[in-house]
Design a protein around this nucleic acid. Structure first.
Length: 200
DNA sequence: GATGCGATTGCCT
DNA sequence: GGCAATCGCATCT
């Protein structure tokens, strides 16, 4: 049984996410995103790029205003917030801060670790560096759509975040693709990774 | 009920 | 580097 030979990927506990968003974001680098498609196929990627969205005090955050869509970010930490971007792509966040306070971290890029052929199939692309190097690409490679909005990422299951190995270095830059609060250096990357959505 | 837009991507020049 | 594709949601009327 291959599952018995596979090392256990231990979920990050809810308490990990129940901290200030700017503390959670850089410490998420190196963590593993795990997607179980079925009993035999598991996808794993190592986080190399994330962005912090702070909530009501952050004009770039969807939680700048509380709406039906953004209300989930006031809920329990460790929950997935998935939304549609430009009508063509899904973007995935993990909710941060204690319940009652809004915040989230956008997952922007992964290093493919396991299940690479399945990622290629899901993406319709062969080149390794194009599989998960962007927020819309990684959700497609991991078969994550709106049905995962609200999913608990702290429990072993179809989709969760697990302990990994922190990068040697961490760098921060302005966030990508936003207009408001575009100067805040709240994008965190592993600068030594070759799977970033863009360099620097 | 109608309108405008965006935390992107891929293809084109 | 420019730009079309495409749709859920926020924000009007």
């Amino acid at each position: 049984m291959t599952t018995a030979l596979r090392p256990t990927l231990r979920p990050l506990p809810r308490a990990f996410f129940a901290r200030p968003t700017l503390e959670v974001a850089p410490t998420l680098l190196g963590a593993l995103l795990v997607r179980r498609l079925d009993r035999n196929v598991q996808l794993v990627g190592r986080l190399v790029e994330v962005e912090a969205y702070l909530g009501p005090l952050d004009p770039a955050s969807h939680a700048y205003r509380r709406t039906p869509r953004s209300a989930i970010m006031w809920g329990p930490p460790g929950i997935a917030y998935v939304y549609v971007s430009y009508g063509n792509h899904y973007c995935m966040n993990v909710v941060t801060e204690p319940e009652g306070t809004a915040g989230a971290v956008l997952l922007r890029a992964l290093e493919p670790i396991e299940g690479i052929e399945e990622m290629r199939r899901l993406r319709g692309v062969q080149e390794l560096k194009l599989l998960t190097s962007g927020p819309g690409r990684l959700t497609q490679a991991f078969a994550v759509d709106l049905s995962f909005n609200g999913a608990d990422l702290t429990r072993e299951g179809p989709l969760y975040l697990a302990e990994g190995t922190p990068p040697r270095r961490i760098a921060s830059t302005p966030r990508i693709g936003i207009r408001r609060a575009a100067d805040r250096p709240w994008r965190f990357i592993d600068p030594d990774s070759s799977y970033l959505s863009r360099s620097v």
